[in-house]
């Protein structure tokens, strides 16, 4: 059965469908019982602290790692047995630059074009160079490019063979804001054309540009949904505090019962609690007496993640 045959069935648009994926490298599992579904045409954000198992999950999805247990499909192909088919249709951009540093941009792209047996590899590479705006650097060695250009080249190489699914592992790490925005515009354009994108990132603003996000820590999914859903599901009450002596206040607040998270954001302090009532009681006097100004606010995605992170740390402590 091919991807197209699946595509005519009701749950037509599920591109990634995995269940109970577990993977360990000798020690404790790095990914635990992970279940997820990704729908066609969506940009799906994959977030989580360092070492939480994002890269490992992406590698399992594209057949580079075999899960210890669990099963699933990617584009309708079994991730255990049909990896060759998966590789044909998936573009995987690795976290670490993994094109050939001693080949030029053009040579790298031509290599990819030939691997996928494109009809006119030279022309395909040239088109990609123009699309990426790399005309002036086309004959520069990939190893000599700056970080941002490397990322752009890697993305270009990924989409060259017109995959149906993109797995991008921290594609914008170390990229300047303008280039990041261009990068995301490009990703949105591709998604609009029907491509599905699973992208891991550490940037909150990028998470907010995803249609759906999943937060993973210690190999387990802790939150999932649209950004608004994830924020709502966290049931965090948050105050934004401005005024003098914020750092002293922060130290003091951390000792209070009912305050789960205190995080400075520039000249503001975000104070959150999982239990709204408890937070209100604990901070009642401070709010009334000042000298800082307290305003009830919406928790940001970052508040939610930092809280999730500290919660799991507690669990593992």
């Amino acid at each position: 059965m091919s991807a197209q045959a699946v595509a005519t069935e009701p749950e037509s648009d599920i591109v990634i469908d995995v269940e109970g994926l577990t993977k360990s490298f000798g020690g404790p599992p790095v990914v635990k019982n992970l279940t997820m579904q990704v729908h066609k045409g969506l940009i799906y954000g994959f977030l989580g602290p360092n070492g939480s198992g994002k890269t490992t999950t992406l590698r399992m999805l594209c057949g580079l790692l075999t899960p210890d247990s669990g099963r699933g499909t990617c584009l309708g192909y079994d991730i255990r047995t049909q990896t060759a088919d998966i590789k044909r249709h998936v573009g995987y951009m690795t976290q670490r630059f993994s094109l050939y540093q001693d080949l030029s941009i053009r040579e790298n792209l031509e290599f990819v074009a030939r691997i996928y047996n494109l009809d006119h590899p030279r022309q395909a590479a040239q088109d990609a160079i123009v699309r990426l705006g790399l005309e002036n650097r086309a004959d520069q060695l990939a190893g000599d490019l700056s970080g941002g250009w490397k990322q752009r080249l890697a993305l270009g190489a990924c989409i060259l063979p017109q995959p149906e699914l993109l797995l991008l592992d921290e594609p914008t790490a170390g990229v300047d804001p303008k280039a990041r925005r261009d990068f995301w515009d490009e990703i949105h354009k591709l998604a609009h054309e029907g491509l599905t994108v699973l992208v891991s990132t550490h940037y909150m603003d990028e998470a907010e540009r995803c249609h759906e996000i999943t937060y993973i820590a210690y190999g387990e999914i802790l939150a999932h949904g649209s950004v608004a859903q994830v924020v709502a599901d966290a049931h965090l009450s948050t105050y934004t505090v401005t005024g003098p002596d914020l750092s002293d206040l922060a130290e003091y607040l951390k000792t209070l019962d009912g305050v789960d998270m205190v995080a400075p954001f520039g000249v503001e302090l975000h104070v959150s609690g999982r239990d709204g009532a408890k937070l209100d009681t604990a901070t009642a006097t401070l709010r009334a007496e000042g000298p800082q100004v307290w305003t009830q606010g919406e928790p940001t995605l970052e508040d939610v993640f930092i809280d999730l992170m500290s919660k799991t740390k507690d669990n593992y402590a």
Binding site: A3, I115, Y116, N117
Partner: peptide
């Protein structure tokens, strides 16, 4: 019955192997 996609047609077979 399965409909081969563009990519499948391109990347299967002897000629594709030779291209790689």
């Amino acid at each position: 019955m399965s409909v081969e996609s563009d990519v499948d047609r391109r990347t299967r077979g002897f000629r594709a192997s030779f291209s790689r």
